[in-house]
């Protein structure tokens, strides 16, 4: 059973619905399962058709607005060049910070090698000159220890690259989504007006919240919160 979409919004649509409901009711009274199922199917088809009709009208309205405001050229520029350019810039930022972090870690590794060498030389010196006066070896030893601690802290500070990279990559994904949405919108504004029912975003449920951005996130746990929570769970 097929019902013209336009009929839905009009009075005939309502009458047809009532007729179908009455038919379903009769089928139940008669105990006619087949007729009941067929009537329910017709109602269900009707509902889908109504939804599609609604979407089609929204699409038509978007099309009209885009034409009236002459948005085509602005949106084309945004979707075609400005947004891809913004994405490239963000990609570049991630690459640059990654390179800088690796350069720092390379230098930390090399400096550690130097402090190891200093420690070895110091041992040789201490053995060869056990009677050396003054506190020079002790002072140098303390300096080397402090230097190593600073190098460890320096390496640890490069953690920012992972976290900032993850945050920027999220923004890149968002920008890509906006770009796709705009491209779709422009396609809609074209001569062939197509529509499709909105697809559920399959990836959305699997997306993890990611690193905390101060000021943007309110529901995240600190390490202490996490420790308490895990303790509650027996860990």
């Amino acid at each position: 059973m097929s019902i013209p979409l336009a009929a839905w919004a009009s009075g005939t649509g309502r009458e047809a619905t009532l007729a179908l409901l009455a038919e379903a009711s009769n089928a139940v009274s008669r105990g006619d399962r087949v007729a009941f199922a067929r009537t329910l199917d017709a109602l269900s088809q009707w509902r889908d058709a109504a939804l599609a009709d609604g979407v089609a009208r929204v699409v038509q309205r978007v099309h009209n607005v885009i034409n009236e405001l002459n948005l085509d050229s602005r949106l084309t520029r945004l979707a075609g060049s400005d947004i891809p350019d913004a994405r490239n810039r963000l990609d570049y930022v991630v690459r640059m910070t990654e390179q800088a972090a690796h350069r720092t870690l390379d230098l930390v590794d090399d400096s550690r090698r130097i402090t190891d060498e200093m420690t070895r030389e110091l041992e040789v010196l201490k053995t060869a000159h056990a009677d050396m006066p003054g506190s020079l070896p002790a002072t140098v030893e303390r300096c080397v220890t402090e230097l190593r601690a600073n190098l460890s802290a320096l390496a640890q500070a490069q953690e920012y690259q992972d976290l900032s990279g993850q945050i920027v990559n999220r923004v890149i994904t968002l920008v890509r989504d906006v770009e796709n949405a705009l491209t779709d919108l422009l396609h809609i504004a074209g001569t062939d007006i197509k529509f499709s029912l909105p697809q559920p975003n399959k990836g959305a449920a699997a997306v993890l919240p990611g690193p905390v951005v101060p000021g943007s996130d309110t529901s995240s746990a600190s390490q202490l919160d996490a420790d308490d929570l895990l303790a509650d769970l027996g860990l």
Binding site: L163, L208, P209, G210, P211, V212, S220, A221
Partner: peptide, 9 residues
Amino acid sequence: AESQRDQIV
């Protein structure tokens, strides 16, 4: 970096 309660649980 995942710090939501749900993730920890």
